[in-house]
Design a protein around this nucleic acid. Structure first.
Lengths: 233, 233
DNA sequence: CGCCAGTTTGACCAAGATCAACGCAAGTGG
DNA sequence: CCACTTGCGTTGATCTTGGTCAAACTGGCG
């Protein structure tokens, strides 16, 4: 079955506070959201601009308002790894280390909200529901990371690409058509492959009639069953 | 530089609550630890016994008292992936999904404490310091998972093995000698390699004088610099 | 029009997987 | 006590997948 790793949305975290945790009153959600709005600041970044760098002080976290963000790390010899992509509604950069272990960059033009960690900690200490929301979000991120480890550690190149396409479809709330905001290079570094391999496999999927690709960044699903079959055979 | 992914210990989580979060009074630690002891139950498992299975209800989490636990997932065609090993002091199985996505198994004989999730949630809601401790633990797990993604996605087989040995050394609080509790097969499934590749690379390290291997599970570091050099070329 | 960045395709190569055999130590049963 | 089995670990020969190197293609833009 197709491995799913949907990004953690903050509103999701409040809407579905984990099965055992019970339900949060709707008014509570509004209050805490407003509380966050008050401590946040809007920022915008242009294509390939760095939002934070590896080694920066990790004094705040972010929520994507629009656009796509990539979290990545560069090895000394130039190899790059993309840990995750984040889309509108997703939160990123929440860490407990003093320094950033990864950098964050705008894939295209991006608008984010920036929240200071200290103020967030204060809000959380006074508000168990909010704390629970953030905790669930982090736990969801962790589960996604574990699924991604499975993909990177044990899946073949076609399985990785098929999984990626189905996952993107899911995360962008699409069923048939999809505009990929990231380059082939980004996809390769996300899947632990080379750009050539990603290209070849996408072309193969197209030849096999599983997808259509009117433009490099435009993907249309023609045979979802075939893709799903590819995704974990 | 060598990539580090130390497991999250519960006491660590309380001892170092993240740089920006301030310090927790020592009495607070004792109280919350006692609180946990009260809701926990001791369990023991024998070699290869299942602690929980994929699909089980996720109503509790665990702390390793002694022994080694592996968290793993089986693909339909028999491929296996080990998401993480946990040693004495590490916590595992804390999830917000209704069902387990991974199974947990005893690598050797294991003793754990089992804590119900519901009671934990209650404790956490009343105790911000405790909440923070658990949050930091989860964030540390997430950071480790991201480092492991880097290893699985972008590192060569010798780099993975060297990293693994250095990481085990660190996690077992050893500097020169190390007894690996897990089989070569476990190591392979943890590193996304085959057992043959793991064997060959360990033998190569031994031939190169980087390690000594008086018995398959006994590793002695002879040239840490060489290992470190291997670990990220 | 020509350039440029990103994408695609092809030919070849190498790292690691697969298949197979062997080693070795710890049981087990006669 | 010794044959026999069983479960790991190790090593070698060969094959496959995906990486590397190189060249061609495409669309946008000055």
């Amino acid at each position: 079955m197709f491995v799913q790793f949907t990004g953690a949305t903050y509103s999701d975290a409040l809407d579905r506070p984990g099965s055992a945790a019970g339900t949060i009153a709707h008014s509570g959600q509004i209050d805490t959201l407003l509380a966050f709005e008050r401590i946040g600041a809007r920022r915008s970044f242009t294509r390939n601009e760095e939002i934070f760098a590896e080694g920066d002080a990790a004094g705040c976290w972010f929520k994507v308002i629009s656009g796509t963000v990539r979290i990545c790390k560069l090895l000394v010899d130039g190899r790059r790894h993309i840990a995750e992509f984040f889309f509108a509604g997703d939160c990123f950069g929440l860490e407990n280390t003093a320094e950033r272990l990864f950098s964050a960059e705008a894939v295209g033009d991006v608008i984010v909200m920036r929240y200071p960690r200290l103020a967030t900690e204060r809000l959380i200490d006074d508000n168990p529901a909010l704390a629970r929301g953030l905790r669930d979000m982090t736990l969801r991120d962790l589960a996604n990371a574990q699924m991604r480890m499975l993909v990177l550690g044990r899946m073949s190149a076609p399985e990785r690409v098929a999984n990626f396409l189905l996952d993107m479809l899911e995360r962008r709330d699409a069923t048939r058509a999809l505009d990929l905001p990231m380059s082939r290079n980004d996809i390769a570094d996300y899947l632990g492959l080379t750009i050539e391999t990603v290209c070849r496999i996408m072309s193969a999927f197209k030849r096999a009639g599983a997808i259509d690709m009117p433009a490099p960044h435009r993907i249309e699903i023609r045979d979802r069953a075939a893709l799903t079959a590819f995704s974990d055979a």
